[in-house]
Nucleic acid binder design. Structure first.
Length: 514
RNA sequence: CGGGGAGUGGCGCAGCCUGGUAGCGCACCUGUUUUGGGUACAGGGGGUCGCAAGUUCGAAUCUUGUCUCCCCGACCA
């Protein structure tokens, strides 16, 4: 409806990149910090991250993995041990070379030349090497295995081009690292982690994903296998939402992670690593955001229900507040999706209408307004953020519900919102994956002719390697396309390779990507 | 890192070409008004124009450097 007055100035369909930035500022998620590529995550954005942390951490612990913390600084020499790893990260590393500043005589400070570090330290871009060191100390016998560690930390990668949440120089993440006796066990763990991600991202963030293996040229530096979950954003681009790697024995070799087996022989461990980051918040924005701001899925919403009293500087204000407080208390005693309902009674001064739009932009799942008349009728005015508009009249859709009915139905309401956000995203994704193209020229043409939101294409290929693969990558690059992954649950190949015409061996997803 | 664009009150922008030390909308504050829904009117507060140096009697405006952001490219577990 064109007569709807949306809360944002930019619409998704007009300028998706600009819209994305506007959501971040309008929903008060984060802001620029003045330091290149680094952002300040504000309370509402951080609150969403904390919800993710809590839910993911529960899953990690339930899988028998323990949290620990390793240093931010890694000796340079550690990095030099694994050749592919060096190649992958060397060009984007922050390096610490001094440990003291002195006055430069002009009122400023400079690194003290006399305080140069013997060996430079790098700021971790990931922790395989330093955790590998620890594992080498901790593992002696087959009885010490499997060793399964996770850490929540910040990492730094000196990115050339940054975008808030999606690619920042410093970001927050969790990285899991495990060591196993055999290849089979390590592979099993690689998949278990991937499945943990799929479940958390789909069930908690309401972001449908496709799990699969990354092609050879997209592997983590040093990994034997890299698996990912890929999500489709509202502009049809793909976002790698999490990765899980089987590292083989190369990191074990580099760090000396060995165990004595039951026969008394020294064996190398097989290791894995897997990670998800604050990039997921960017995914939530681009999956669930709309032209009125963010829509936060209830499971990760810091406040699931926000109550706004309509205060007017009148004597009955106190009664309205008391009534709201009763509603708040009653809701807090209710549970939804396995946890107590999180309710905020927003008593901050200010007009109710202004506060309402603030919470709309932030994406609180349910907004409840209460005025004197609601109170006298024993009702509340309820808005669902995922169904904000009455399309008939272009006004906000509000249902005036008896208080007790609202309270007792709140649990189900939140579940419904969680489900409907997921269903909406899943349907959109499914409607935008095209299958059946059999020639490369068709694929190239498809992406050229389908405008701004072409979505993804699933095609078959012969899984080329070496020079043949390089040629394919060049072809894709010319169209700004990438191979996302080989979907784990896709059907077996039954056709020919779109690149070579040979017999195909598997199906791949091709898409533009973040 | 290469090419292009931009930084002016919280947000969005005008002013810059043709130097004379700031203005608009929204937001904010005060008052009145209105009151089932992003009310209206009046008054008001807030910015040394990213930072630094230079040219000039005088710089938001011209020059240079620098930082940050955006777009394209290269690069990116």
């Amino acid at each position: 409806m064109s007569n709807i007055r949306h809360a944002l100035n930019v619409k998704r369909e007009d300028d998706f990149a600009k819209w994305y930035q506007e959501v971040i500022s309008a929903a008060d998620l984060a802001e620029e910090s003045g330091v290149r590529g680094c952002m300040v995550i504000k309370p509402w954005g951080y609150g969403i991250w904390e919800r993710y942390q809590r839910l993911m951490d529960d899953r990690i612990k339930a899988a028998g993995i323990q949290n620990a913390y390793f240093p931010l600084f890694i000796p340079l020499a550690n990095f030099e041990r694994e050749a592919d790893h060096v190649d992958g990260f060397a060009k984007e590393m922050a390096v610490v070379t001094h440990h003291r500043l002195i006055a430069d005589g002009k009122g400023g400070l400079v690194p003290d030349p006399d305080a140069k570090l013997e060996e430079p330290l790098v700021v971790r871009p990931t922790s395989e090497t330093i955790i590998g060191d620890a594992m080498a100390r901790w593992v002696q016998s087959w009885r010490d295995l499997p060793l399964m560690i996770n850490q929540w930390a910040n990492v730094v990668r000196w990115e050339m081009r940054t975008r808030m949440f999606l690619r920042t120089s410093e970001f927050l993440w969790q990285e899991g690292h495990t060591a196993h006796a055999t290849r089979e066990e390590a592979l099993e763990e690689t998949h278990r982690a991937l499945e943990m991600y799929r479940a958390c991202v789909e069930d908690d963030l309401a972001m449908p994903v496709i799990a699969g293996e990354k092609p050879e040229h997209e592997r983590f530096p040093g990994a034997d296998e890299t698996w990912s979950i890929e999500a489709m954003m509202q502009d049809g681009k793909a976002l790698q939402a999490g990765t899980s790697h089987y590292l083989g024995t190369s990191f074990a070799k580099a760090a000396g992670i060995q165990y004595q087996d039951s026969e008394g022989t020294q064996q190398l461990c097989h290791t894995t690593s897997w990670g998800t980051s604050t990039r997921l918040i960017g995914g939530v924005i681009m999956t669930h955001g709309d032209d009125d701001g963010l829509r936060v899925p209830p499971r990760i919403a810091p406040h699931q229900i926000v109550i706004l009293p309509m205060l007017r500087d009148k004597p009955e204000d106190a009664d309205v507040l008391a009534y709201c407080e009763q509603v708040r208390k009653a809701l807090t005693a209710e549970w939804s999706m396995g946890e107590p309902i999180r309710v905020l009674l927003d008593k901050s001064p200010g007009k109710a209408a202004a506060k309402r739009w603030e919470w709309v932009r932030k994406g609180a799942p349910v907004i409840v307004e209460v005025g004197p008349r609601d109170m006298s009728e024993g009702k509340v005015a309820v808005m669902r953020r995922d169904a904000l508009w009455n399309l008939e009249n272009g006004k906000t859709a509000m249902s005036f519900t008896p208080r007790d009915e609202f309270v007792s139905g709140a649990s189900k309401l939140l579940e419904d919102i969680q489900d409907s956000l997921y269903a909406e995203a899943r349907d959109r994704r499914d409607a935008n994956i095209t299958r059946g193209l059999t020639e490369w020229s068709e694929v190239a043409e498809f992406f050229r002719s389908n405008g701004k939101y072409p979505g993804w294409v699933e095609v078959q290929w012969a899984k080329p390697t070496g020079a043949a693969l390089e040629k394919v990558v060049e072809q894709l690059k010319a169209e700004k396309l990438t191979v996302r992954n080989v979907p784990r649950d896709s059907e077996a190949a039954d056709g020919t390779c779109i690149f070579t015409g040979e017999k195909a061996v598997e199906r791949i997803l091709v898409a533009r990507a973040y």
